[in-house]
Design a protein around this nucleic acid. Structure first.
Length: 445
RNA sequence: GUGGGUGUAGCUCAGUUGGUUAGAGCGCCUGACUGUGGCUCAGGAGGCCGGGGGUUCAAGUCCCCUCACUCACCCCA
């Protein structure tokens, strides 16, 4: 075997880090289900042609190949999915007759992208997706509910506060059309870089792309607009532009912002600079960042797509969805040791093994605890208590249980090894404090 | 794919103008300590110095190539 090295972009965590990740994934799952979303898992692969159909993703797709494949031409052409939206589109079409609409599903799975990794960007990572798909028309209420769920879900995670920016593609397209811009996608792409290259940079790029300076300035003025309520609409009107598409976009975004007015002020902001690169979005778009971790980029995003599913035919299956970049959010915090679990194992109680003769009694204690949902393990060999306590201490196990002296009729005792307090206890009734039942997650220090 | 940086123990790093058998701290394992851990002390395991080639009496050290990791661009969670 060659020397073992990590593979860039394929993160692996230690048990205590995995505990954090798992608790976050569990938390998301719980919250999604509280809102009535059903779970779906799709296969890891999709036909290449389907993966290539939307967006300009090309070399970022990992292709599946058999080691001894003889006929390169005749193979199925499968690739690993790079997001969960494309698989969803396929899934909804495939099982259309068996799904009840509007179809609300969540999906927490790994996805793969073949691009060069760097901080916050991985080649294998978790996405937690939330989508609603309906037939013919999809209520705008869902656009607001998505944002609400995003804010609540991320808010419940052990990460810095989320600021969710919301925009509407129709506003951008409406303005661009009114300005006579022809290359909508190209312009969106440039404007999307506002955060990165700044206003002067974007202005230069727009002019280089063939826009008149006054037009570029208007695009910038539009991108500068943001508000924590519905007042953005007035600001757009001062640009002096009109159009059906623009009006529809403004009323949609106004509706969404009004629906979210009860959320803490500042968590949701209408931000007209948000464009989103993916070209299948047709209305609301979302993009969330963590306060203090803006350099990571978007940690959650999404939007409405009216034509992604069922494209081409008469069937219309509009959807709106968001995706939470779990690995991106956690990666920095876990890697930097900023987020840790209170212990490295699930065990709450270590039952000591004083001698070989007491093994049965020790196991009975552990069984009694497990029967009541308390994670317990017995030490594997008779050893002096110092060694057994050390075993627990190394792993962060909070309690050590001492069965009665072998042969004697003594009492059971349990010790909290953090404080050293030791009390007489009954295996059938003793219960740890709720906080100690499972590992807890906390920012360090 | 394009450009920069870095490669020595599990981790963080020393290692002189090239010069014997490559070190430290932390971590890990064992013992002192056969019914009570954290402290202390003693000991142990763990390295083809990323890989290959070259210069030299002599390379961890200098040169070339390569690979990996990493940062930025592109793109995105």
């Amino acid at each position: 075997m060659a020397k073992i090295t990590p593979i860039s972009g394929f993160p692996e965590w230690l048990p205590e880090q995995r505990i954090v990740e798992q608790s976050v994934l569990d938390g998301l799952r719980r919250r999604f289900e509280l809102y009535g979303f059903a779970s779906v898992e799709t296969r890891a692969v999709e036909p290449l042609e389907r993966l290539l159909a939307k967006g300009e993703t090309d070399q970022e797709i990992y292709v599946l190949r058999r080691l001894h494949a003889q006929d390169a031409d005749g193979d199925a052409g499968l690739g690993l999915h790079f997001d969960l939206t494309v698989p969803l589109a396929r899934y909804v079409e495939q099982f259309r007759g068996q799904l009840a609409h509007p179809f609300k599903r969540y999906q927490i799975q790994k996805v793969w992208r073949g691009e060069r990794p760097q901080t916050g960007r991985y080649r294998e990572f978790y996405q937690a997706d939330l989508d609603v798909v309906d037939q013919d028309d999809l209520s705008l209420h869902f656009d607001a509910e998505m944002a609400r769920l995003l804010v609540e879900s991320v808010g419940a995670m052990p990460v810095p506060p989320l600021v969710l920016g919301i925009n509407n593609r129709k506003i951008l397209q409406g303005v661009y059309e009114a300005l006579g811009i022809e290359d909508l996608a190209g312009t969106l792409r440039i404007v999307d870089k506002l955060d990165k290259v700044g206003e002067t940079g974007v202005r230069t790029m727009l002019v280089e792309a063939g826009l008149a300076e006054s037009v570029a300035d208007t695009c910038l003025a539009l991108g500068r607009i943001r508000s924590t309520d519905g007042s953005f609409a007035g600001a757009v009107h001062t640009l002096g532009l009109r159009g059906d598409l623009l009006d529809r976009g403004l009323s949609e975004l106004t509706f969404v912002m009004d629906s979210l007015a009860d959320l803490p002020r500042g968590t949701v902001v209408a931000n007209l600079s948000i464009a989103r690169g993916l070209d299948y979005y047709t209305g609301t778009v979302y993009e969330g960042q963590l306060v203090g971790l803006e350099a990571l980029g978007a940690v959650c995003s999404g939007g409405r797509y009216d034509d992604l599913v069922g494209g081409g035919g008469k069937l219309k299956l509009p959807g709106v969805g968001v995706s939470i970049g779990v690995t991106r959010m956690l990666g920095k915090l876990l890697g930097g040791g900023l987020l840790t679990a209170s212990r490295k194992v699930p065990t709450c109680v270590l039952v000591t093994l004083p001698s070989e003769e007491t093994r049965g009694a020790a196991r009975a204690v552990a069984d009694a605890l497990r029967a009541r949902g308390i994670a317990a393990e017995t030490f594997h060999e008779p050893a002096r208590f110092g060694k057994q306590i050390k075993y627990a201490q190394r792993r962060g196990i909070p309690f050590v249980w001492f069965p009665p002296e072998s042969g004697g009729g003594g009492a059971h005792e349990v010790k909290d090894i953090r404080g050293g307090e030791q009390i007489v206890a009954d295996p059938a009734t003793w219960t740890p404090p709720t906080v100690d039942l499972r590992p807890s997650i906390a920012p360090r220090d």
